[in-house]
Design a protein around this nucleic acid. Structure first.
Lengths: 128, 128
DNA sequence: TTATTTAATGCAACTTAGTTGCAAATATAA
DNA sequence: TTATATTTGCAACTAAGTTGCATTAAATAA
């Protein structure tokens, strides 16, 4: 029997933040913007729940820091982070390049469950 | 003026370990296999040096854990981790799929410096 | 509306990963 | 063999994330 999940204030606010962000947010950024709405442990737990419920994506940066982004195409397509993520080494922003989907051929004897395509470099804003 | 780097015992042993491993190793795994040859801080520092010297690759797993692998094609090609890495969710092994190189088109206004392509799933060994 | 139940929260304490400063040790070149 | 600059060990620290447990608060039933 599956555990029922609740629509709490913390969850609503965190999801709203991520959905309106335009770029992926780290735990620290979310905590700062929440302005003491809830404990930092709660943020961790809410983020994990949202990932499980497939409402947000978890993106691991090239330095190991985790960021979270809203799901855009997951209504239509399968929930899978199959596009490229870009991490700017100057302004530190992490964004989803939703349209850039790499093609590759995984050997048949491998089973794919999850993918994380991360590119670090300089974003258009900082390059200009 | 560039700092001259030394060929110390710790560096030799760590590079040997990684080169002979057949799979990517984490800091913890390296520390265990080194059997108190040196301090854990030294391992961190040696690993960073080896990455800077482009003797090994740094691979970030889907859970944020960092692994290190020997460079195979970097003699001939540019030093760039442009192939797919595979992380088995069962046996926890991290391997380089040297031949699987994704193709994608990054918009011209982005500048790429580094990439990390990670796929998590079940490896041939564990699937069998 | 109130009572019941179970998920979610807050807090404190903890683990794990990695970093820093500094004195001592050691590889390299002269 | 000596000089010098890199590397190491140690202790202490930061940052990221987890866990246990008592309390709070959604959601549902009465």
């Amino acid at each position: 029997m599956q555990k029922k999940t609740r629509n709490t204030t913390a969850k609503q606010e965190i999801l709203k933040l991520i959905a309106n962000a335009g770029q992926a947010l780290s735990h620290v950024e979310i905590q700062q913007q929440l302005n003491n709405l809830c404990d930092r442990v709660t943020i961790y737990r809410v983020l994990n729940r949202l990932v499980e419920e497939q409402k947000i994506h978890k993106i691991v940066n090239t330095d190991g820091v985790v960021n979270y982004a809203a799901c855009h195409d997951c209504e239509h397509h399968h929930h899978n982070d199959n596009h490229v993520h870009f991490s700017c080494t100057i302004c530190k922003s992490v964004t989803c390049l939703d349209n850039i989907i790499p093609t590759f051929q995984l050997p048949a004897d491998y089973l794919m469950q999850e993918m994380n395509f991360m590119i670090a470099g300089i974003c258009p804003n900082c390059k200009a």
